[in-house]
Structures are given as structure tokens and as C-alpha cells.
């Protein structure tokens, strides 16, 4: 019988990951929040006037909102417990390791369910179109105080990018998490890969989700209602998502 040893490249990567995980967590949370604060102060919200209008067009169905809510809630709980695991500070949460781990598993199941669901229901709306190039050229207008509304379908190019970003990392985090929940079923090196990739995906998702939350609320007045009552104003739709607005007007 041959003995398994660690792949040196992986072990070195892992040690690097362990050494800097604290700093990386800080950058992906506090760092991103500071960036957001900077953006809010220097550039500020986009098209403030659209925030005060009456929401009347259905943008997200109750099913979509439920999926989003479950994914959001489970993500927050997973992120908090997950960071505690990564920094070996579960006690700070006032929980025992076993309790925190069970909570993590239950919400991981909900996250998996809602993520796979979200990936499926928003796939069609997230396929890039030729006009999305124009959105990227001006970065959605987020880098200027001027009000710019580049072309956009139901989702704009930035949202589509976030869809693919979160899809990629969600699948990665779900699979690696599944492996880590069954340590007896995998080899040592596979588990170590899973551990590192689970952490990296989590960092990516945490940073991305914080930015996503900002863009869907403070950065774009009139948007936050989408995930609460599901509606937006006609003006909002016409300005932010002209191609989508045309589509629903024609129906």
C-alpha cells in the first residue's frame, strides 16, 4: 500500500492561503465597504429622481423574489459562520463548533437549492447581447456623476456579469462544500483543494455580493423595491432597462 502525501504545490498554496486569509477577509469586507463609501461620496447615486416615483411594473415574480430572499438570507448566515470557521473564531459567535457547523450545513442546503434555482430562472435573461458592449464601454455610467443610461435588457450587462460570476463561484463553493461535509469519502489532497477553493469562492462571493447589494439599493434609487414588493416605476424601467421596457410595452 502506498502512502498519500501532500502535493507540494498545493501545500504551499494552502500555507499561503492560511497566512493571508485574515487580510483577504478584511479586504473583501471592510475593503469593499470602504470602496463603496468612496463611490457614494465621490460619484453618488445614479438618477436620484427615479427613486421617488410610484412602482407599478412587476419586475420580479413572487417566485423569483422568494428564490432571491432564500439565497440572500442563507448567504449571509453562511458568510458569517464561514468567516468564523476560516479565522478559527467560532467562539466569537457565541456558538459551539458543532452548533455553528450544523447551522452552516442547513443553510448550505438552502443556499444550494436557491442558487441552483436562481441559476436556472435567470439564465435566459443573462445571456450577453451585442448591445451589452455599449454598457461596458461606459461601465454602466457608474464612473461619472453624469446620468448615463446605456442599452440594457431585463438585466444590464453588469448584472449579467454578476450572474455569471456568482454562478461560477456558487457552483464551486457548493461542490467544494459538499466534499468538505464528507471528509471520509475523499482523498487528502482533494479535501485540501476543496478547502482552499471553498475559501477563495467564499471571498469572491462575499466581495461581489456586497457590491451587488450596494448597486441594487443606495447606488440606484428606486431599485430596492424589486426584491421586496417586486415592482418598479415605468420611468425607472424606461431609463435603466430600455430594451426590456420596450419588450413589456409591446406585450
Amino acid at each position: 500500500m502506498t502512502y498519500t502525501s501532500t502535493n507540494p504545490l498545493l501545500a504551499n498554496l494552502n500555507n499561503l492561503y492560511l497566512e493571508y486569509i485574515g487580510l483577504i477577509v478584511l479586504l473583501s469586507t471592510v475593503g469593499v465597504l470602504l470602496g463603496i463609501a468612496g463611490h457614494f461620496v465621490i460619484i453618488g447615486p445614479n438618477a436620484k429622481r427615479l427613486g421617488k416615483l410610484k412602482p407599478e411594473i412587476v419586475r420580479l415574480t413572487p417566485f423569483e423574489r422568494t428564490a432571491h430572499f432564500v439565497r440572500m438570507l442563507s448567504f449571509i448566515i453562511l458568510a458569517v459562520t464561514g468567516i468564523a470557521f476560516a479565522l478559527f473564531h467560532v467562539g466569537t459567535l457565541g456558538l459551539s463548533y458543532v452548533a455553528a457547523y450544523k447551522i452552516h450545513l442547513v443553510f448550505a442546503a438552502l443556499f444550494t437549492l436557491s442558487s441552483l434555482n436562481s441559476i436556472f430562472i435567470w439564465l435566459k435573461d443573462s445571456i450577453f447581447k451585442t448591445y451589452d458592449r455599449d454598457w461596458f464601454k461606459v461601465m454602466g455610467g457608474y464612473l461619472t456623476r453624469k446620468e448615463i443610461h446605456p442599452p440594457s435588457g431585463r438585466f444590464n450587462a453588469g448584472q449579467k456579469a454578476f450572474y455569471w460570476f456568482s454562478t461560477f463561484f456558487s457552483i464551486l463553493i457548493i461542490f467544494s462544500g459538499l466534499m468538505l461535509a464528507y471528509p471520509g469519502k475523499f482523498g487528502l489532497n482533494s479535501l485540501l483543494w476543496a478547502s482552499v477553493l471553498h475559501g477563495i469562492s467564499a471571498i469572491g462571493l462575499i466581495a461581489g455580493v456586497i457590491a451587488h447589494a450596494y448597486l441594487g439599493s443606495l447606488a440606484n434609487p428606486g431599485t430596492i423595491g424589486t426584491i421586496i414588493h417586486g415592482k418598479v416605476s415605468r420611468e425607472w424601467a424606461k431609463n435603466h432597462h430600455p430594451q426590456w421596457f420596450e419588450e413589456i410595452e409591446q406585450k
Binding site: M1, T2, Y3, T4, S5, T6, P8, A11, N12, N14, N15, A181, Y182, P183, G184, K185, F186, G187, L188
Partner: peptide, 19 residues
């Protein structure tokens, strides 16, 4: 799932050198 059901012998000494 704590037990190692995968038949794998781990070289503890070597793994520890990389830990």
C-alpha cells in the same frame, strides 16, 4: 461521516512537514 471510508493511507510525518 467522520471515519475514513476511502481506503487511503496517509503519510502523517510528510503531511505534517507541509502543515
Amino acid at each position: 461521516n467522520e471515519t475514513n471510508t476511502k481506503k487511503e493511507k496517509i503519510d502523517t510525518k510528510e503531511v505534517q512537514q507541509m502543515s
